[in-house]
Measured scan of single mutants.
Amino acid sequence: MQRVNMIMAESPGLITICLLGYLLSAECTVFLDHENANKILNRPKRYNSGKLEEFVQGNLERECMEEKCSFEEAREVFENTERTTEFWKQYVDGDQCESNPCLNGGSCKDDINSYECWCPFGFEGKNCELDVTCNIKNGRCEQFCKNSADNKVVCSCTEGYRLAENQKSCEPAVPFPCGRVSVSQTSKLTRAETVFPDVDYVNSTEAETILDNITQSTQSFNDFTRVVGGEDAKPGQFPWQVVLNGKVDAFCGGSIVNEKWIVTAAHCVETGVKITVVAGEHNIEETEHTEQKRNVIRIIPHHNYNAAINKYNHDIALLELDEPLVLNSYVTPICIADKEYTNIFLKFGSGYVSGWGRVFHKGRSALVLQYLRVPLVDRATCLRSTKFTIYNNMFCAGFHEGGRDSCQGDSGGPHVTEVEGTSFLTGIISWGEECAMKGKYGIYTKVSRYVNWIKEKTKLT
């Protein structure tokens, strides 16, 4: 034993070699072989497995989906700052455009905790909710729209109204504003409101030439003092309507412009014939205590009207009353817009006519005020429907199939267009061939041609 100890002390290297040989010859039971080890760690190889990531292109799944990435790591994937920024906006807080917040056709661009709407022409605001041009839906104005110097929408209202708090709607500024039905039992019968379409306001006024200088022999019209197929109006439903009495009662109609003036057809009036105007009328054979009678003290036909040349060209006249009318729910003026808007309103496509005229061709006159909704007829169809001249200051309205029309005794009465609950004068009943005849239409004086003249002559002093 002493000898062994001496050998170990003198030859430590020998001992180490012996131990190493023993270990190498022993069977290893701690580690699995290569094949079995792979069965336990069965993990798919990654895209760049075996390579240094710093030297390969980034992978979106590896960089940002398996674990949260930084902007720089995302930049490695896209290799483009702009594309990385677009991805980053949604990656950080989701897609803010998912709810489609942009209105009126706006395009949404996502941002971090926010979004941006790219608005089409005519709109602005956070969600493109603000109209900035009158060309689109009248700028959301209830009545009139004008573009300011910086191309912003400025709404306005006709006389007797003021802008509401929203700067879009119009509200009454006087007790009985024009064009409004205020009798409670008839307010439910107000005709369907007309909503502004998209309009090209630059070209809204037709490029028409008034044929002022045409000389033409007097034409022989049949029954051209021209509501057939209409309905009984309720008291106060058309408070701007008046009836004219002269040699015979209810020979023509008219509309209240203001307390002192009536507008009617020029062919209705004769110099030297006494005319009485009755406002607030409903049943011409009954006294309903809503009527107001006034005498006409002055007749002003349009300066281009000449019955000797043509009885229905420039067929418009103004009547001055001896005493002002007292405005109330049964006696209310009709609204008159400017030339541009009167023309736009007419193009809405349908209007209402009213009167006490004959209820059928050569038949009896109506006792109760009649009204009828009539569609506008395109000019080409209008011209083809008659052998008589249709001037540019006239328009056609009615039904091709016949059966409904204005008729004798309705002449001078109103053709009105309702705009968001307020009625505007767009025409004056003038003439036609018979009444409600198939293929024939009622012919009306186009008020847009005469609004400046009306307003100039009827100013209240």
Rank of each mutant, 00 (worst) to 15 (best):
W240V: 00
I443C: 03
Q370K: 07
G432M: 05
A366N: 14
I7W: 13
S107P: 03
K109G: 04
V154C: 05
D150C: 04
R43G: 15
L318P: 01
V326K: 12
I309V: 13
E208I: 13
V331D: 01
L189G: 10
I7V: 12
E82I: 05
S255F: 01
K137Y: 06
K126P: 15
K234N: 09
Q219K: 09
W261F: 06
N151K: 13
P333L: 00
V353D: 02
H415G: 02
N304V: 03
R83F: 06
A192P: 05
C268S: 01
C252K: 00
I297P: 02
V174Y: 05
I428S: 01
N113R: 12
K457W: 08
F360H: 14
T422A: 05
N113H: 12
N222W: 07
K39R: 13
A397T: 06
P235H: 07
H34R: 12
V181I: 11
G106I: 02
V278W: 05
E124P: 04
S354N: 09
E79W: 12
C335S: 00
I256L: 04
Y201Q: 11
T389C: 09
T194P: 08
P101V: 06
N151D: 10
F55V: 13
V227K: 10
K188A: 13
Q90V: 10
W431Q: 15
I454W: 00
Y22S: 09
R379K: 13
L327V: 08
W88D: 15
N283H: 12
Q2V: 14
T16Y: 14
L244F: 03
D223Y: 06
C396S: 01
L24N: 02
E434G: 09
S49V: 13
L327K: 04
D378C: 03
D378K: 06
P120W: 03
F388Y: 15
D93S: 15
G413D: 06
T342H: 03
V227H: 06
D322V: 01
K152C: 05
P12S: 15
G21I: 14
L460F: 12
V181A: 11
V263L: 11
Q219T: 09
K459R: 09
Y115D: 03
T426Y: 01
K455H: 12
C382E: 02
K459F: 06
Y391R: 14
N48I: 05
Y312S: 04
G398T: 04
I262E: 01
V416F: 07
A26E: 00
A265W: 01
F123Q: 06
T426D: 00
N245L: 03
E171Y: 09
K293C: 05
V416A: 10
T194S: 12
T264G: 02
E323Y: 06
P197K: 12
Q241S: 05
D93K: 10
G398V: 04
G254V: 00
T194A: 10
G351V: 01
C382V: 02
D93F: 06
C335G: 02
G421A: 07
F348H: 07
E281K: 11
V228P: 06
L425E: 01
F121W: 08
S182C: 03
E142K: 07
K45L: 10
C170H: 01
R43T: 14
M437V: 15
K234C: 03
A149N: 12
P333E: 02
K234T: 09
G58F: 06
H314Y: 08
C396N: 01
S169F: 07
V154D: 10
T287N: 15
S11T: 13
K455G: 04
H400T: 11
Q90R: 06
A366C: 06
I390G: 07
P175I: 06
A436V: 04
C141W: 00
A366T: 15
